[in-house]
Every structure is written in structure tokens, then in C-alpha cells.
Nucleic acid binder design. Sequence first.
DNA 1: GTCAATAGTAAGTGTGCACTTACATTTGGA
DNA 2: TCCAAATGTAAGTGCACACTTACTATTGAC
Lengths: 199, 199
Amino acid sequence: MSRPNQSPERRLELVPVLAHTFAEFGYRRTTTAELGERCGVRENILYRLWPDKRAMFVAALDYVYQLSEKTWNELLARADDRVSPAELILDYESTHQGEFGLYRIVFAGLSETDDPEIAEAMRRLYGRFQHFVRKQVKAHHDGVAVPAVTDPGLVAWAIVGLGTVANIGRELGLLSVRARKRLVGEVGRALLRDWADEG
Amino acid sequence: MSRPNQSPERRLELVPVLAHTFAEFGYRRTTTAELGERCGVRENILYRLWPDKRAMFVAALDYVYQLSEKTWNELLARADDRVSPAELILDYESTHQGEFGLYRIVFAGLSETDDPEIAEAMRRLYGRFQHFVRKQVKAHHDGVAVPAVTDPGLVAWAIVGLGTVANIGRELGLLSVRARKRLVGEVGRALLRDWADEG
DNA sequence: GTCAATAGTAAGTGTGCACTTACATTTGGA
DNA sequence: TCCAAATGTAAGTGCACACTTACTATTGAC
């Protein structure tokens, strides 16, 4: 034997670059030549690390979730007991949401769901997002007498929907920063609010 | 002169076919050859009716909104005063939402927003959706003492978000028919509910 | 130092597809 | 019945781009 295989490390280095490139151009309009250039390598180097362009995209999708989860977990680690985790994430997302433009990968993925592997990656992404949010909503509900919506799973989907539509509004220039903040903040809180409280 | 130009009529005939084809394959994976075949004409016929593929897509996007608006207006025309128009639309969407798969065109459009004309068409689409829903929410608020969220515009965006995430859940097989119905129905009603009522 | 595997360079290649061109046929107003 | 415009057919064309091949240079365990 000679020279240890450093492919895994190399993949970890390059995935963020892939993700940002796919976010910028979408799936189809991203060329493997462009990916190589951004990564500072020739195309065939990428083809040694991943079997095809599709696999590069799937890797980028997985990276997007991991990055979000990491950010949220760091956020929750700094939580005190005055504000519930669910509210903390809402507040965070209402200001920082989408700031790296990575949501555009998700949009790209949504029109490539005929590919089973991409569909699977999208399922992982949305499934995990919803699962994560649901956990926080459930915890939040422990301190709530009469939740506006009883099923935490439904609330989690609705919150994911808020984030999604906020990103659509941003992408199309239909929602200002301020409007997006109010959308996620006010509607999100209405979904979490205690129905037993005063109006 | 001889033979009147029937292009406008022909366009009206063909647009639904374009829309269903784009919905099936997305923007990039739809070939002009396929469009021609589905329309039962040669490619260059399509190029006489629209300048390029992009224009065909934009026409399909506009068609999608027109179809939805038509459906909703017919629905509202049958309304009585026991249920508010906003609730009527929620109930309708919670069962029939996305049934023709045309939402997939919207997903396709979301990853083509770098094209100014497509972006503009998407803005029209989402802008009109939100505007339409907002009108119904506003009317609904007239009969409500303390709305859960005061700004009808925000509520409208949230409802559009519910529809969007429900379609994503359907597309990825993450939400069953039943779950989608509950998502749009229960969360939608929570957003419309009167905060002054009993819990 | 040797050798085998890794890492990198440079130049294809084949195909899919948006769009075009050249030509034939039909239509309907005068 | 003429003829100009509309409608249709058939066969390109050129380019973008995913993926490959052939080759060179580096690394590091022995």
C-alpha cells in the first residue's frame, strides 16, 4: 500500500462549494465545468469523488440540512428557560432565515423529484426539518394549557411552510426583510400561543 | 389579404397541453420535441406561436393562475352566509388541492427565477394568489372580534405557505391525503379563528 | 529508492436539444 | 381563379455539456 485515500476529507472540503454553486444556478444550469472551476480542480477530480453530477447534488442537499441542524443546535444550547426552544428558533429564523441563499438548492431539488435518489434526499431534508421542529413544538406544548393546534406534527409542518413561503417571497422580491420577520414571527407565535390566555 | 390569423385561438388551445407537460417534466427536462408531440404538431409550429421555450413556460404559468382563479370564483359564487369565503376556500383546498399536479410547474418556476421573464411570471402568480386569499381573509375578519393574527396580508401568506408545504409533502410522499387535509383544514382554521371565543 | 496507489492535467467525445431552414399544402378574400 | 398569407412537413445545425480517456506528477509505506 501507499498513500492513504483522502477522498472522504476532500469530499467534506468540497461539498460546501458544490452547495453554494448549486444554490446559485439551480441543478440543471450548474455545469460540471463550473463546479470544477469553483472547487479549483478539473472536472474528472469531481468524478473520482462522486459517481455523477446527481450524486454531487445529493451531497449538497444533505449538507444543507446538516448545516441548519448544526446552527439550530448551537442556538438551543444557548437557551435559557424564559423562552421556549420553539420560540427561540422562530425568532432566529425570522431574522436570519435564508441568509446564505441555500434555500435555493431546495427549490432546485423540488423540480428534480422524478429522480429517485434526489427525491429520497429531499425526503430526508424535509422529514428531518419537520421532525426537528416538531420536537421543539412538543416541548413547547408542555407549558401550554390549550394549544391553538393540538397536533405538534401539524404545527411543525405549518412552521416549515412559513419558512418556505418566506423564502419564496424573498426570492421573488414580494416580501421585504421586515415583512418576512413579521410573517414568521407573528404567525409562528399565533400557532404556538396558548388558547387559554387572554386575547 | 387572405386567411385570417388564428394564432390567438391556437395558443389558447395549446396552453393547457404545455402546462401539463411542463408539470410532468419540469422546465429543463421538457423538450420542445415532447411539447410538439403532446400538442400533435411539429416543433416549428410552436415556434410560430411563441418566440421561444421560455415564453411557452411563461404562458403555462399564467394559465395555472387563471385556472385556479376560475375554480375559486366558481366556488365563491356558490357560497352561502353560513361559512365565510375564506373557510370555503380552505375546505376546498384541503380536499382538492393540487389534484391536477399543476403545482409542479410552480416548483419548476422556483428554480428558474434567474430568468427575469420567468421571475416576473412567478411574481404575478404568487402575488395574485396572495392578493386573492388576502381579500377573503379581510372579509372574514369583519365577522371576527379578535383575530389570531391581525394583518390579513400575513394570514394570506401563511395560507399560501400551507398550500405550498402541503404540495411539497404530497410530492415527496411525506403527507397522506388525510394529513394534508388536516394540515390545511386545522391550521388554516386556527389562523382564522376568533381569539375572543372560548378555547 | 521502489512501487503502487492517489492526485492532478489536458484534451476529447458523443449526445441531447433548442432553434432554423427549405419546401409543400391549404385557406379564403378579392 | 388567382395569390398571398397561414398552416403544415421534414430534415437539418450548431452548441452546450455530462462524462471519459490518456497521460503525468506526487505521495508514503516498505
